[in-house]
């Protein structure tokens, strides 16, 4: 089954699912409402044999940082990017969703659907401060517990400590 056919079948149950204008080259890219990302992935896994989660990551699009206005001014969102594959057919689909940058930022966790989400969601939490609802062990993974703030946010300011 091609990505196109899967899209048409899935869109019947998830009207919020749309094709993104901006594609992740060169993969079919769909935008998913944040609250249904877990159910869409469950559907893809059970109904369309998508058995592999390639990666999860996030991109910070702040409305403004200090006096500078970034290229996506006015969006003020976190963009989450998921790439999932059906290894048997070789189809890969990229899912994007946008959530508000207002604290606290929440999105459903994929823990349990794909165990690969365990550490990758912890990484995104650690570096972006996005909370994954339903993750049983959401704590910092790469930075030390004493880390202040979330380093990969565009407005991150390093607070000098005794090692600087």
């Amino acid at each position: 089954m091609t990505a196109e056919e899967i899209f048409i079948k899935l869109q019947a149950s998830f009207p919020g699912l749309v094709k993104s204008e901006e594609r992740i080259k060169d993969y079919p890219t769909w935008t998913v409402p944040a609250q249904s990302v877990r159910t869409v992935c469950e559907q893809l896994r059970s109904g369309f044999s998508f058995n592999y989660l390639d990666f999860i990551t996030a991109v910070d699009w702040p409305g403004s940082v200090g006096n500078t206005v970034p290229p996506a001014a006015g969006r003020d969102v976190f963009e989450l990017v998921y790439l999932i594959s059906a290894l048997s057919t070789g189809v890969k689909i990229c899912l994007r969703c946008e959530i508000s940058r207002k604290e606290p930022a929440f999105i459903p966790s994929l823990y349990g659907v794909f165990m690969a989400a365990d550490w990758q969601e912890r990484e995104v939490y650690d570096l972006f401060g996005i909370h994954f609802e339903g993750h049983p062990n959401l704590k910092r993974i790469l930075t030390p517990e004493t880390q202040l703030g979330y380093p990969l946010r565009k407005d991150y300011a390093h607070v000098p400590d005794s090692y600087d």
């Binding site: 992740i24 080259k25 993969y27 390639d54 990666f55 990551t57 990017v81 790439l83 990229c94």
Partner: peptide
């Protein structure tokens, strides 16, 4: 945005 991945020595190495 672009994603490319290869078969590295330790597995599927990708850059987004």
């Amino acid at each position: 945005q672009a994603y490319a991945h290869i078969e590295a020595s330790r597995g599927d190495l990708g850059f987004y």
